[in-house]
Design a protein around this nucleic acid. Structure first.
Lengths: 221, 221
DNA sequence: AACCGTCTCCGCCGTGCGGGGGAGGGCCGG
DNA sequence: CCGGCCCTCCCCCGCACGGCGGAGACGGTT
């Protein structure tokens, strides 16, 4: 029997989860909490196998609550499955760093939820969303960086235009910056869109970032 | 009915997987391949929903095969679930970078395999092993990143819109994706532009990248 | 000399986008 | 109970943008 504690500030959500989980013969919802602080104490008291932890909660959020639950790291620490509505990358990283066993989107189907609980209870880990792509990309930045085919096909001028596009300039500003006419810039932009297979400047800039043609020049990174 | 293609060089393994999967009423093994090259052609021909891809195979390994399958990226690309015996971190990274939907250890229980197939078929992603810990830990070390002040000020809806903007969608497409009216999206976009201090969607997307609000991902996205 | 790619510019035209308003409903905290 | 925030949606307007076709000039290749 897998004993579970639910931590979510919305009663509706907790009820829905409870209904889903209690329907399974091998799962049992042992307790609930509506705040992060409450979650910590409830878990300490009930010592469940799995904790379903919402990220956004009053007082103490799910990440901090997870840290506090897993920080003592005594005997059999419960497995924390972090649940949230969106796939903000930062949440995934923070949750994992806090020691969470997995990450689950609220829009997952009921059977996925049940499967996830069983999986983490068996002490394996489970991740979920597309945020994983970010993880892989982060690794990719440390090692190789295969430029896509279209980079080579861009002419010097077109590459220059794309770089300026990626700084958020309008065509007119790019024209002034490059000392050419606006019509010329439009031509180059059109060429960039065609060669990158994108339909507008926004998609082109995204392609530039995704391909590593330009790197996010973060303050520390 | 979820149609599956198995790619593994060992007949025994393929048979075992087939037995497990075919026992499920909603799963069907449509084809098999014993090399990476064969996997590519079989998948192209059968167009399955899910591909169970072994990493270590003769001729072309599972990672490259995955790349070739997902590179064209046509309409409904199959979901590739990479299977391996080891939890070598590099495999995880490479698999994800190649666009794999998930990563699965061979020592996973049968029901986990089935659950994983169903999950990825529903077009979500799933990871598995303890190797994730290393992944997350490694990433956490490399991540200085502090989200800029404006991230916190974005409402849930606005953040959602910004994420979709950063995938290159137009307002109309975002509206459809979110199930709201175009006018509503425009309102949110305007709010995002105001809060991020940008003047158009391109600059907003750039800000999202530069701030780490969204991370550059692989091509398979 | 003919050819091609690149860079430079010019129109026209449809439209996606962003700015400026306003409006109603839900929910929460004071 | 009311003010404030959020979400939802509407109007009009101006404009930058992107698609289309055309043009002249330079350099290199054939």
């Amino acid at each position: 029997m897998i004993r579970i504690v639910l931590a979510d500030d919305e009663r509706m959500v907790r009820t829905a989860l409870r209904v889903i989980l209690d329907a399974e013969p091998d799962l049992e919802v042992a307790g609930e909490a509506s705040t992060g602080a409450e979650a910590v104490s409830v878990v300490r008291e009930l010592r469940p196998d799995v904790v379903l932890m919402d990220v956004r909660m009053p007082e103490v959020d799910g990440i901090r609550a997870t840290e506090r639950i897993l920080a003592p790291a005594p005997e059999p620490a419960p497995r924390v499955l972090v649940v949230t509505t969106f796939e903000n990358d930062a949440y995934v990283y923070d949750a994992l760093r806090a020691g969470a066993a997995g990450f689950l989107l609220k829009r997952a189907a009921a059977e996925d939820l049940v499967a996830a609980v069983r999986v983490v209870a068996r002490s394996d880990s489970l991740l979920y969303p597309a945020a994983l792509r970010g993880l892989a990309a982060a690794y990719a930045r440390h090692r190789p960086a295969a430029a896509p085919a279209w980079v080579a096909r861009l002419t010097e001028r077109e590459a220059e235009v794309l770089r300026l596009m990626a700084t958020g300039l309008t065509n007119a500003e790019i024209a002034r910056r490059m000392g050419v006419g606006p019509a010329t810039v439009k031509t180059h932009v059109a060429a960039v869109l065609a060669k990158t297979g994108t339909r507008d400047r926004t998609q082109a800039v995204i392609a530039a970032y995704e391909s590593g043609f330009i790197a996010p020049a973060g303050p520390g990174a």
